[in-house]
Amino acid sequence: MGTTFLPVASIVSSAGGRDGWMIVLPAFILGIPYGLMVLSLLSQFPNKNLLQVSEIVFGKGIGKLIGVLYILITGYFGGLLLGQVGDIYERSIMPLTPISLFYLGTIILVFYLCKSGIEVFARFSEVIFPLIILALILNLTLSISRIEPGVLLPILSEGVMPLFWGGLKVAPFVMEYILFMAGILAFLPTDMKEIGQLRREVWRAVFLVGILDMFVAFTQILVFGPFETTRIVYGLLVLGKMVEVSRTVAGVESLFLGVWLGALVIKISAFLFTVVWGLETVMNLKGLKWEIAVCAVFMGIAFGFVRGSVLISEISFVDNYLILPFTTIWILGLWGTARWKKGKNIRGN
């Protein structure tokens, strides 16, 4: 799910140095209890998304407040991600093409995807995901010849503490996923057997993405060394530039970029979905014109962050200081309160 492999290596190596790759998977596993909490809420409140659940559990006022926060955060982040598409393309392969075209092309795709419905969206991710994995594996294996020996050693020379802080930086990635889950909940099947299936899916997805991200970070540190990895903005793209197939085909990053574009489209669509659902549940705003309005807002945000370096720091700011605390507190609080209420009800009866 998503595009976490683009910045992941840079983030973890800046926090954890040459051992940074080790924290990726544990940080992703942090997402599993959250996923399971969300699922348990699903079995308790079938066919309701978490915003509706919050209204039931916390009452109308707080529920609405959470809903508005949810919309603001996901909408803002979706816009930032759209900006990232432009940034990536402009930075790496097509510097002379107007950035607005990247925004436009992507937002049209996103809109078309969302218009086709959640089912098509699910299938789209199903098709793109193997592509992403294939591209990643190709990218990683083809850069094996560029590996610098010994850069990973010594292991854990700086102790474990930097790793912990690095983990905090990676955790938001998984929280983005949970945020989307919170919205999609209303569309998930609810009988017990299917929930068991979903539980397995959560495990599988988290592990798969976690392991892939780990490998991405691992390979980048191997190829660039920890110092360079921190410095390179989108390490994976540079890795793509360095790919050489038997000295003839070199620098196929523009092909890889096509796949990353697919990943970003999925992610932005996911956020578009969450915003649209949020609007629907909280303010009862529904229909085509609101979807177009959200797309326009995304475009607006993207145009607000034409400066790449500001964009990147803004994304990490939203990740670390909005998405992470919001999701952590919200889901935990919701789950706790729902459990407590349920327990009280049983005792009361």
Binding site: T97, I108, L257, L261, G262
Partner: peptide, 11 residues
Amino acid sequence: LGFFGVAVGFY
């Protein structure tokens, strides 16, 4: 639009 265009069309 180069490969961006191809990717958009493809998707």
